[in-house]
Amino acid sequence: MSNDTTTRTKSAGVAPEKSDRTFWGWLSVWTPYTALMKLVTTSPRRQFVILAAFPILWVLTQHLGPMLQMLRVSLIDAYPVAPGVEQHFTLDNYARFFGERIFWQPFFRTLIFAGTLTFCTLILTFPVAYFLARHVSRKNQLLMLLLLLIPFWVGEIVRTYAIMILLGNTGAVNLVLKWFGLIDRPIPFMYTSFSMGIGIVYLTALYMLLPLYSALEKLPKSYGEAAADLGAGAWTRFRRVTLPLTLEGISSGCTLVFLISTGFYATPVLLGGPSTTVFSETIAGFFHVAGDEWPTGAAFATIMFVTAMLLTGVFQKLMYALRKGDTK
């Protein structure tokens, strides 16, 4: 077996050597190439500029650009600008948000919803991550994690549809409840905040599980044993050792899940009802119609983005302070 691999690597090593005399050797003496290299490598400074120019240009124009243009559109009175008409700076688009209940209510509903669901996801996945990291042998860990990853590769729409089939009036849950004689007529799970919550947790659980798992996996088992030797009970061990040392994983998992769940559009449309309108539906509404409502939509999206970033920023700062406070 080992003999076989050595001969394989040897024979694999021969091929590039041969091509050395052909392609690479030829390239390194090819005049246009050497001229180019001379130009590029004259100074480390120029070399760096050539390497850095494109990435910096890309992140500024493609990553930051869309956000800045959204901010700009949110501050003008009409977009796209009609020819011959001057555009004016205005804050009216932001004022509209506070003026009408149908605008700010979905906004606060979204924040409360996303916060609650993040917490539920944490409670749901923590024992799973804990089990995988502490009670399963190394070899099985990967397999059992892989098992959970498979559904994660399936898209948002397909998984949302699967939840619709599970919870519908003629869905699997109602069928099982009827079999056991617990209900006479189906419970209307669908188009409520319940079905929406189940759907969103279903979509985001893995984003919580993975950071938790990697935090728990890094935690040496001996810490818990040491605490036990010093007389700490199971609950104390969890509260004083495991929890403080996994705060980093908890904080990144919660941040991810919160940001993702505020941004869902199709899932609330398909699983929610009129009483569960979330802010992404409100924002999208301004983009279905012709362009004249875009500034308002852009303003609302900016409000949501800034709020989400501020909340997660404050949350991360808090978790950081908690972590530092505990190690002191």
């Binding site: 650009g65 956000m67 959204m70 940001l259 993702i260 941004g263 869902f264 924002i283 999208a284 939509g297």
Partner: peptide, 17 residues
């Protein structure tokens, strides 16, 4: 940044851009 922007906001920012 693009990985952190919530889905709907990223979509409409791209639409405007």
């Amino acid at each position: 940044l693009p990985a952190l922007v919530p889905g709907i906001i990223s979509a409409i920012a791209f639409r405007i851009y």
